[in-house]
Design a protein around this nucleic acid. Structure first.
Length: 550
RNA sequence: GACCCCGUAGCUCAGUUGGAUAGAGCAACAGCCUUCUAAGCUGUAGGUCGCGCGUUCGAGUCGCGCCGGGGUCGCCA
């Protein structure tokens, strides 16, 4: 649709000598009365041409060579917009292609051959995944999906560290709980993890090893506790992610950066470029040379690196592994580290613009109109697992994806657990199920399946406002997918699907599909089949099921 | 104190990268099922787009300054 106009209007601009003076763009007007596509090119050209915008618009329109079978109306409106209205047949004939493409309708090749990585979740195995991780998981996984839809070669990656301070606290907490099983009076560390899951791991250890860890050297006992706790927790993390339909391709261990000396390589390179120096027994990264407001410690005076250094080394690895698009999905609490990492990457000679950081804000849980305060250290947080138990994976994913990344997400448990029609995911799924049911009915009535011979369908009979509105909505899907991939904003998909479902429900209300007139019936069945395809494809991108019955 | 995100209908949120008369869901009110799924549809009501300047043909959108909410600022991750 856009391409068609770009060619025609572009040619007109050439003829008038306006070519290249302003960027030609089309967009869908908000108001139906303004046609299907509009351009502001005349407004942009007016100044340079020294003419009234409406005059310029008139010139362009007069110079246009349009096929009246496709574009039924071209008019100058308002301050100088040019509005184009397409014929219903123009839209209708595009349905044939959608019927043929089916499950791949909406895919594109704009990212073909581009190696992309999406890093998401990346929680250390110190406890169950939280609701916040759930949002990140949904966002990251959907971005990975959408990038695949646009032809990127996608790797889903999970980065973790099982060697740091957090894991030490985990080991200590577990061991303390274990000892308490034998001596209730024994101490629990001040900063230990309070969660009940620690006690369960302790019980597991007791059942496996009895009291054999009680008398032995503490370091040995801690090592056993750490290993077992990590294993249990990582299994739990992977299983929750699997419940959400998420499977990472690579689990990248921070520790490997040390054993393979990648950390040292970064430090050496910084030093050789004069971007690292020693002060107060620590090694500093000269971030101020790269425009940041202060230098940062990368190796503490104790000899241990700060988190910054492995983060930089890890991102360097992403580039060395050949990724051309690096998407990092982080919670808002990690926002501070990003400038350091990007500066580090730049210092090492890589292009920081290839790193796209997607920051998502926090999730607030509401229960009975009250906010549920969550803290990982205290016991009172709702795990992702529990949330899925209550609401189901489809609703969890859909809810997490409904809001734009930068918006705090309010998740109303009381509402979501109602399983009522208030749940927006049902609205979209219902449209899909309704079509599936109707197609079953149509076939049982001996209707012609439009998919058996898409070229035989008489699409031109689709002309009513509801039919046209639905067709237009369907035809926007490929652009939506591309836009989502480009902007890395998954919430666009639920917004779109909701609009599509509305357009369908209206159509369904206005028209009976299975009717005696064969041409009309088949054409409407084709329209329904296309709608179902787009709903299914959109839901697939979200990782939400598209049920055939509800 | 510095930096980042947010502020749009009673509530939760969209707003196509600067376009024409700002939208949806929920809540409220009034209607629509003997006919392919009423988990649906139609209508009514609801707004100083936090406030104020500025940029220009044109601002919810861009810039600056305030106000309010959240977040981050460590030789923690």
């Amino acid at each position: 649709m856009k391409r068609y106009l770009e060619e025609r209007v572009g040619a007109a601009l050439e003829r008038l000598g306006y070519a290249g003076m302003a960027e030609l763009a089309f967009e869908a007007p908000k108001q139906e009365a303004h046609g299907d596509l509009t351009t502001n090119i005349a407004l942009l050209l007016a100044k340079a041409a020294g003419k009234n915008p409406r005059v310029v618009a008139k010139e362009i329109v007069d110079s246009l060579d349009m096929n009246p079978a496709s574009v039924t109306k071209t008019e100058v409106a308002g301050p100088g917009f040019i509005n184009f209205t397409f014929s219903p047949a123009f839209f209708a004939r595009k349905l044939e292609g959608i019927l043929r493409e089916g499950a791949s309708y909406g895919r594109s090749t704009v990212g073909r051959g581009v190696k992309a990585m999406v890093e998401y979740v990346s929680a250390n195995p110190t406890g169950p995944l939280s609701v916040g991780h759930g949002r990140q998981a949904a966002i990251g996984d959907t971005l990975a999906n959408v990038l695949q839809w646009t032809g990127h070669e996608v790797t889903r990656e999970y980065y973790y560290n099982n060697a740091g301070r957090q894991m030490r606290v985990l080991a200590q907490s577990t061991y303390a709980r274990y000892r308490q099983l034998f001596d209730p009076a024994s101490a629990f560390p001040e900063d230990g993890y309070q969660g009940e899951y620690i006690q369960q791991i302790a019980l597991l250890l007791k059942s496996e090893l009895g009291d054999s860890l009680v008398g032995i050297e503490e370091e040995k006992a801690l090592a056993v506790c750490k290993e077992r706790a990590e294993q249990v927790l990582f299994d739990a993390i992977k299983s929750v992610l699997l419940r959400m339909g998420i499977r990472h391709d690579v689990f990248y261990n921070e520790d490997s950066l040390y054993s393979s000396k990648k950390i040292n390589e970064v430090v050496d390179e910084f030093r050789s470029k004069g971007l690292a120096y020693d002060k107060d027994g620590a090694v500093w990264f000269k971030a101020t040379d790269l425009g940041l407001d202060q230098d940062r410690v990368i190796i503490k005076s104790t000899g241990e690196p700060t988190y910054r250094l492995p983060d930089i080394a890890y991102h360097r690895e992403k580039f060395l592994r050949g990724f051309e698009l690096v998407v990092d999905v982080f919670g808002a609490d990690h926002i501070a580290t990003i400038p350091d990492v990007l500066a580090g990457i730049k210092a090492l000679g890589f292009d920081p613009d290839k790193v796209k950081v997607v920051i998502h804000q926090f999730v607030t849980l509401m229960r009975n109109g009250e906010q549920v305060k969550m803290s990982k250290r205290l016991a009172n947080f709702v795990t992702l697992d529990e949330l899925i138990d209550e609401v189901g994976s489809d609703a969890v994913r859909y809810f997490f994806l409904m809001r734009s990344n930068g918006t705090h997400l309010e998740f109303d448990l009381s509402l979501a657990t109602e399983h009522s029609d208030k749940n927006p995911v049902y609205y979209v799924q219902y449209a899909h199920a309704r079509i599936a049911s109707m197609l079953r009915f149509a076939m049982s009535e001996g209707a012609i399946d439009p998919a058996t011979d898409p070229s035989a369908v008489v699409y031109d009979v689709l002309q009513s406002p509801a039919e046209i509105a639905l067709m237009k909505q369907i035809l926007q899907f490929p652009e939506l997918v591309e836009g989502t991939a480009k902007s890395l904003e998954p919430h666009r998909v639920p917004t779109y699907l909701h609009e599509l479902a509305t357009a369908f429900h209206r159509f369904y209300h206005d028209h009976r599909v299975v009717v005696p007139e064969k041409d009309i019936s088949t054409a409407r069945l084709a329209l329904c089949a296309c709608t179902k395809t787009v709903l299914a494809n959109g839901l697939a991108i979200l990782g939400v099921s598209a049920p055939d019955r509800m």
